[in-house]
Design a protein around this nucleic acid. Structure first.
Lengths: 113, 113
DNA sequence: TTTGCTTATCGTCGATTTACGATTGCAAAC
DNA sequence: GTTTGCAATCGTAAATCGACGATAAGCAAA
C-alpha cells in the first residue's frame, strides 16, 4: 500500500469541515434559519418551534456557538441568541471557495465519468 | 415547557443537512478537492494523497456517494471516481439559499446582539 | 486457471453524537 | 430573603462515526 503522504489536512479544510459539521443536522439548519428570519433574537421560542426538548435545543445551540455561527447574550432571565455575522462571513468565503472549485454540469468536464 | 410544534423538519433542511454532514470531515473535503483538481478520475491515488488507510478512504468515498456528491464507475481492475455534478448543482442551490438568507456584516441587523 | 492488483466489505474498538429527564444556576420579581 | 422562570449542565443510554487490519470480491494478464 506504499506509505502515506502524511499531508494531514489543511487549516482551511478543517475549518470548512467544522462549519459543515455544525450544519450537518436538520435541527441546526432549522435553528439558523429561524434566527435569520426573525432578526430580533429569539431565545426559548426556539424550543416551541422545534420538535425537540429544551436540553436538546440548548445542546444544538452550544455546537453552533462552538462553530462560530451563533452568538448568545444573557439578557435578564432569558438568553438572547442571534447569528454571528463574522462566522457567517467566514462560512460564506469557505463554502464559496469550495463551490467555485467544483465544475458545473454546463461546463462538462472531459473526464471519464 | 408547553407542547411541541411537531413541525418535524423540512425536506430541504434534511437534504441540506445530509450534504453538510458529508462535508463535515476534513478528509472528505480533501477528497472532493482532489477530484475537482484532477478532472481525470483518480482512484486509489487518493489513498496515496491522504494520511489514511485504504479501507478508511473507501468508507469516506461511500459516504460521499451516498450523499450524491461523488460517482464511481468500475473501470477494469480499478474504480474511477469523479464528482457527481448533479449532486453538486443541488448542493450549490441549497447552500446558496441558506447563505442568501443570512444577513451580512455590512447589512447590519437592528437586532439586539 | 492461476496469479496479482485494486477496491469493497467485515468485524472491532473507542470516541462522539443525539436525545432525554433531572438537576443546578441565575437574575428578576415578589 | 424567597420564589419563579428560563437556560445551562449533568448523567445516561442508544446510535453513529472514524479508524484500522483482515478478509473477500472483481477483473486482467500470465
Amino acid at each position: 500500500m506504499a506509505t502515506h503522504k502524511r499531508a494531514e489536512f489543511t487549516e482551511a479544510e478543517q475549518r470548512l469541515a467544522a462549519i459543515a459539521k455544525a450544519l450537518g443536522h436538520p435541527a441546526r439548519v432549522a435553528i439558523v434559519r429561524l434566527l435569520a428570519q426573525r432578526r430580533a433574537c429569539v431565545c426559548g421560542e426556539l424550543v416551541l418551534e422545534l420538535p425537540l426538548s429544551q436540553s436538546t435545543v440548548s445542546q444544538h445551540l452550544k455546537e453552533l456557538k462552538a462553530a462560530g455561527l451563533v452568538q448568545g447574550e444573557i439578557d435578564g432571565p432569558r438568553v438572547c441568541y442571534c447569528l454571528d455575522l463574522t462566522g457567517w462571513a467566514m462560512a460564506r468565503r469557505l463554502l464559496g471557495d469550495l463551490l467555485a472549485a467544483m465544475p458545473t454540469p454546463e461546463a462538462a468536464a472531459p473526464g471519464c465519468c
